[in-house]
Design a protein around this nucleic acid. Structure first.
Lengths: 229, 229
DNA sequence: GCCTGTGAAGCTATTCACAGCT
DNA sequence: AGCTGTGAATAGCTTCACAGGC
């Protein structure tokens, strides 16, 4: 085996250790569905049942579960509680993890309300805005700091995730500051592509793009379907 | 050629006529970038320049452009204004198209502000909420109706796109009503999978899932990158 | 029978690489 | 030289289909 092939193989093995982003997304979805099922006192579930609720195929569900190491039984399918635990084991941060929200317009406030207290070990710990009106107010148990303190606070609180809800013009600058302060992942709601170092994970949520997509396909009233991207 | 092969081929041709959803999304992105460039008085651009701004490869840009029928020249690349026109030709509805927004919480209001007056021929024409406080108020030039009037108004205004910003519990019911009223595409912000007829295009924007993804990869501080899903 | 786990096949999407143009 | 347009190759993701188990 050549040196290059060896390198490729090793790299492949490393990558295989981390499931692809699509799988991670679906696991998060499965867990939500399982939690509902649990509330309905369902104890066991088959792949095709979960698949139907998630809007995917049963093979997809089984494939996704492979990356958890958790296995079900042909007789009873999967045990709901165990599967939830298993997904949590992969997805949830072992120790509490903080996120910072930048931009407290309508969208920022919506996000804050949406997430507050929902995820264990993952909380929005600090918010930032330039508007002096908003600074120092506390919303959903989260204090709003002036933008100028961003780097200090993020560093001090060891925050790893940044959520950018600013207007497009400010987004890149904010991303730079967050990156300097040590953030490793960004959720970007501003309709711009951010330029960040390779090692930072960026999830763009581009609502303008999504709306144009929906409008386009609504017009053509096509057969296509989309599954949570 | 067997009957089955023929059928497959014809179906393939039909599908080829409509670009895949990912391409549609990127075209929307390219256009935004081109509009910025136009504002900067740039007249021509090469695929690799546009690609850099969009965060994709130049081959990707060229491939995407194939579905427009618009072609550039090796000498000067693409003409910005013409390309914008060409993308608009594909994406923009020829006649004005209406959207309906359901749920005027923080998120709904953010969406309303975000989109108002941005896209030509695509406007949010009606909003709905159950809260009597909000009903009959006008925001961003858009009147808020009581939820009970949803089907009537959507039908009367011939609205084709629905934007669901309700809590999870209400989402399916709202989707059903919108579907009955003739909507062909849905943008769904509620963290549930909707069950709708095949012919309705659904774009799920699942922020909980996205946040969990970002948190996951931030923790592993991986090399992965994501491009606008 | 109907389930899971998974190799293999099939698809889709992206990138390579080069002919052709200026 | 450096670009576009595109067939061919590759990579990535999903589904098929079946062995093995209850």
């Amino acid at each position: 085996m050549s040196r290059q092939n060896l390198a490729d193989t090793l790299f492949g093995m490393l990558r295989q250790a981390l499931p692809p982003t699509k799988t991670i997304g679906r696991l998060s979805l499965y867990r939500r569905l399982l939690l509902q099922l649990q509330a309905e006192r369902v104890e066991n579930i088959y792949s095709h049942q979960l698949a139907a609720r998630a809007g995917v195929t049963s093979a997809q569900v089984r494939r996704d579960l492979m990356s958890l190491g958790y296995t079900g039984s042909p007789a009873h399918g999967y045990h709901v509680a165990e599967m939830i635990r298993s997904i949590g084991h992969l997805l949830d941060p072992p120790q509490p993890m903080g996120a910072a929200l930048v931009g407290l317009g309508n969208l920022g406030r919506a996000i804050l309300t949406y997430f507050s207290g929902r995820r264990p070990n993952l909380a929005i710990r600090a918010a930032f805005d330039i508007d002096p009106e908003k600074v120092n107010r506390v919303m959903q148990g989260c204090r709003c700091h002036p933008l100028s303190e961003l780097e200090d606070v993020v560093r001090r609180e060891q925050i790893l995730v940044g959520i950018i809800c600013t207007p497009a013009e400010a987004a890149q600058e904010v991303a730079d500051a967050l990156t300097r302060a040590g953030v490793r992942g960004l959720m970007n709601f501003a309709p711009v592509r951010l330029t960040v170092p390779e090692c930072i994970f960026v999830e763009d949520i581009d609502m303008i793009m999504s709306l144009e997509k929906v409008a386009f396909y609504a017009r053509r009233n096509t057969i296509r379907k989309d599954l949570a991207e």
